[in-house]
């Protein structure tokens, strides 16, 4: 009887609908998420925008009209100064006659680098602190989170300013500062989801089979906290780019002649009314990239939430 029971159950399974559906598409969480992401029109627009910027950044040496020399300096053509947009210079030229389009194209490399580097730094530091905090609890948790609270109580740009002043101005230091400023956000998100996951049955199940603390944290809890971290990361890149641009604008980030978008804005702000293209195109580029990351971030948030599937 028992043998035949198992058989009938198996055959029942083979006939089921879930079985039929899963043969066509692999239904792992990763592919499910991608499928949902690609059915979100705004997220596709976002991916298209980011894709464009990445492509521009990668192909800069071929598509730009003007190129920097080994020291990263664009040659000045004083006779071409403040030319409005035309066929030769689609974004016009700046005060010293550099081609704005070329500057913006090379600037894309810097902005992407800033965003990715700063957020990576923030994730590594923030997620570790948050995970330790949530998992250990007690005094450790209290100390870490109170420090995060103090950091979060400063306006981000002000805090970044303080850090840059300590480290000294420059693009790399600005990236570090922007990354550190984002740490509390990641620490909090990670801690909250670690706390949420730790109480779940599958974690108790893992402990019940004898898994140690390290295995429980890294093999079980952390992979399940990834969704909110990924979402926060894509939104965080946008913030980081803005913050870095703000530092550049204040003269504490990238230094001239780096074609960083924020710096371009700041250097040309005196000509806003006479030669608006000098600030319009760098500003538009910042907005384009930030919006792209925001759209992807929102799309990911929906795609990673199985309840909305």
């Amino acid at each position: 009887m028992s043998g035949s029971l198992a058989e009938t159950e198996l055959s029942g399974f083979a006939r089921s609908g879930t079985e039929d559906r899963s043969q066509g598409v692999s239904r792992s969480l990763f592919w499910d998420t991608l499928r949902r992401l690609f059915s979100n029109k705004l997220a596709i627009v976002g991916m298209f925008m980011i894709g464009t910027v990445i492509l521009v950044a990668l192909t800069a040496p071929w598509i730009a009209a003007q190129h920097p020399d080994q020291n990263g300096i664009f040659q000045a053509f004083p006779q071409n100064n403040k030319l409005p947009p035309s066929i030769n210079h689609p974004m016009g030229t700046d005060v010293i006659g550099r081609d704005m389009l070329s500057l913006v194209i090379y600037g894309a490399r810097i902005s992407l680098l800033v965003g990715v580097f700063a957020v990576s730094l923030a994730i590594v530091l923030g997620a570790s602190l948050g995970a330790i905090s949530g998992f250990a609890g007690g005094t450790v948790d209290n100390v870490i989170m109170r420090i995060m609270d103090i950091m979060i109580s400063f306006p981000t740009v002000l805090l970044a300013l303080v850090i840059v002043v300590i480290l000294g101005p420059g693009l790399f230091n600005a990236m570090v500062a922007v990354g550190i400023v984002a740490v509390p956000a990641f620490a909090r998100i990670t801690r909250a989801s670690v706390l949420g996951e730790t109480g779940k049955d599958y974690v108790i199940a893992a402990r019940s089979v004898g898994a140690g603390a390290r295995r429980v944290l890294w093999r079980h809890v952390m992979p399940n906290t990834l969704s909110p971290i990924i979402v926060a990361a894509s939104l965080g890149i946008a913030t980081a780019i803005l913050d870095a641009a703000a530092l550049g604008f204040l003269g504490l980030g990238a230094q001239p002649p780096t074609p960083e978008w924020g710096l371009l804005l700041s250097r040309n702000r005196g000509y806003m009314f006479t030669s608006p293209w000098m600030v319009f195109f760098p500003g538009l580029s910042i907005m384009f990239l930030v919006l792209g990351f925001n759209l992807i971030g929102d799309g990911l948030r929906d795609a990673l939430d199985p309840k909305l599937g």
Partner: peptide, 23 residues
């Protein structure tokens, strides 16, 4: 403790919740 604990195991109320969704 590990040696003894191997001899006791557990089944849970909510089967889905007791299985790690990423494994």
């Amino acid at each position: 403790l590990d040696q003894i604990r191997r001899r006791i195991s557990m089944i849970f109320q909510d089967p889905l919740a007791s299985l790690n969704p990423r494994m």
